[in-house]
């Protein structure tokens, strides 16, 4: 991150090819940040995205092998869009509450998958490895989205999964439900994760 001369295109490319799972998860959460304001619906969005991701990774691994390197991103975007569309239809049919929470952000599931799936690297690994990676990222993404939604719901309206958990006198901090609060909550969550994993690493190194 220190080098100043790296061009922006290369940076975006790094974001798409990074192997750092925490960074991929956070980038994947960004497109859905505006709507991840409640624990339950964020959990739903996370599950829908994870399912779309696993399917997209399977097809990405197959098609990635036969596409030239420059075509991988476009191909993977179309695959992700197809499964995001399918996920959206499933949500509309069986989970209308989640679909309502997504609102017009439903297509953003496709962009989330793009980052979660590491669009720049599809086709490099075998099908088995790609699927394992997608399942891992999917589970991580469900956890991240649920945590994000729960924190914002707790402080932003005083409930978690719809149940009032804070004393009656609590006055919700409305900012948390706004995009400004979403940026803040995700930034702080990432900071906490970095601090915790950093401490674990240190412990591991000294032991």
């Amino acid at each position: 991150m220190a080098e100043m001369n790296t061009s922006l295109g290369a940076r975006v490319e790094t974001a798409l090819t990074t192997k750092n799972p925490a960074l991929r998860l956070a980038l994947g959460a960004c497109p859905l940040l505006a709507v991840a304001t409640r624990a339950a619906s964020s959990l739903g969005m996370g599950v829908a995205t994870a399912c779309a991701l696993v399917c997209a990774a399977l097809f990405g691994a197959i098609f990635g092998k036969i596409t030239p390197e420059k075509g991988r991103l476009p191909v993977f975007l179309l695959i992700c869009a197809a499964f995001a569309g399918a996920a959206h239809m499933v949500l509309q049919g069986w989970f209308p509450a989640v679909s309502e929470g997504l609102g017009l952000y439903a297509p953003m599931i496709a962009v989330s998958c793009l980052f979660l799936g590491g669009a720049g690297r599809i086709g490099e690994d075998g099908i088995g490895k790609a699927l394992a990676d997608a399942v891992g990222m999917g589970v991580g993404f469900i956890c991240l989205m649920t945590a994000l939604g729960a924190v914002r719901e707790l402080i932003g309206c005083g409930t978690v999964f719809g149940a009032a958990v804070l004393p009656a006198g609590f006055e919700p901090m409305l900012m948390l439900a706004m995009p400004a609060g979403g940026f803040l909550a995700l930034g702080l969550l990432m900071g906490v994760c970095n601090a915790v994993s950093g401490r674990n690493k240190k412990k591991g190194a000294s032991a």
């Binding site: 061009s7 922006l8 295109g9 290369a10 940076r11 975006v12 490319e13 974001a15 798409l16 960004c30 497109p31 420059k70 991103l73 476009p74 975007l77 953003m108 962009v111 793009l114 980052f115 669009a119 720049g120």
Partner: peptide, 12 residues
């Protein structure tokens, strides 16, 4: 911008 602009398509 680093040769290919295709990664721009990943901008949501």
């Amino acid at each position: 911008l680093g040769g290919s602009l295709m990664p721009v398509a990943a901008n949501c």
